[in-house]
Design a protein around this nucleic acid. Structure first.
Length: 249
DNA sequence: AATTGGTACAACCGCGAAAGC
DNA sequence: AGCTTTCGCGGTTGTACCAAT
């Protein structure tokens, strides 16, 4: 009943990729496109398993990858996204164009973890280490924005002085599993990005085209307020998390 | 110059989910 | 409906590189 191995290990190379292997993989994908990783190695004349080819392409060879150091903005965005999503590296990577999940995961483990520890923040919970030591319960936290909840009406309304929210925060037995849902536009004002209403696809970052009708309609009022990539999922790029689209079960 | 310890990152492994039959 | 195959994800490991001693 066990799974069959993804490849015949006796006849596959392992370890670092050679220039020739890279060239073969690039050439094959350029002419045939991505897909069917299992059969790709044979078709491309590579003695590698499909998984290895996929990883090499996604993490290293893809032409749209942004190589080089992470910027301070990217750092902060990763921290915010991690506080929200946890170790969902692929989701986090989806919000950072040109970055891969593997790259972000490595960067988190080598740089950001230490950076947060130096700030006195537990990288796992995003809470102050002192606070975490006193409190033996485990809670979800949006520490990065919680600091500002006093002065920020959006976060304050959601989890600030609200007694119920405080109870939830101190009671780990409550089911606080996050669920992402479309913005509730009836209950609240339309989701805005710098004053412009966006369609759901743009709000979720699924639609990045400048020509999306919602963007065309909102041109003029959005100049300079959206992120460089043209979307602002959960309001993260504005520096304030917008929790209206997030619900606890 | 050699050794050691720490860091960065590419690559591997195992698992779960989705897709296909 | 149930089984098998394939893909994608997250955790972990291996190793090259660099700085300190």
């Amino acid at each position: 009943m066990g799974r069959s191995p993804c490849c015949e290990k006796a006849h596959t190379n392992k370890g670092a990729w050679t220039k020739e292997e890279d060239d073969r993989l690039i050439a094959y994908i350029r002419s045939h496109g991505e897909g069917c990783w299992r059969s790709l190695p044979k078709a491309a004349g590579l003695l590698r398993c499909g998984k290895s080819c996929r990883l090499r392409w996604i993490n290293y060879l893809r032409p749209d990858l942004k190589r080089g150091n992470f910027t301070e903005e990217e750092d902060e965005l990763i921290i915010k996204l991690h506080s929200l999503l946890g170790n969902k590296w692929s989701l986090i990577a989806g919000r950072l164009p040109g970055r891969t999940d593997n790259e972000i995961k490595n960067y988190w483990n080598t740089h950001i973890r230490r950076k947060l520890l130096n700030r006195g923040i537990d990288p796992a919970t995003h809470r102050s280490i002192n606070e975490a030591a006193q409190d033996t319960t485990s809670t979800i936290s949006f520490a990065a924005s919680a600091v500002k909840e006093e002065e920020n009406p959006t976060t304050a309304a959601f989890g600030g002085k609200d007694a119920k929210s405080q109870v939830q925060e101190r009671c780990p037995d409550l089911n606080l599993e996050l669920r992402i849902s479309p913005p509730c536009q009836n209950q609240y004002e339309p989701l805005k990005t710098g004053g412009a209403s966006l369609c759901m696809a743009c709000s979720l970052g699924l639609q990045t085209s400048k020509d999306c009708s919602c963007r065309v309609a909102s041109k003029g009022s959005t100049s300079g307020s959206t992120s460089a990539t043209g979307y602002d999922f959960l309001g993260l790029t504005s520096g304030v998390l917008d929790y209206r689209g997030l619900e606890t079960k």
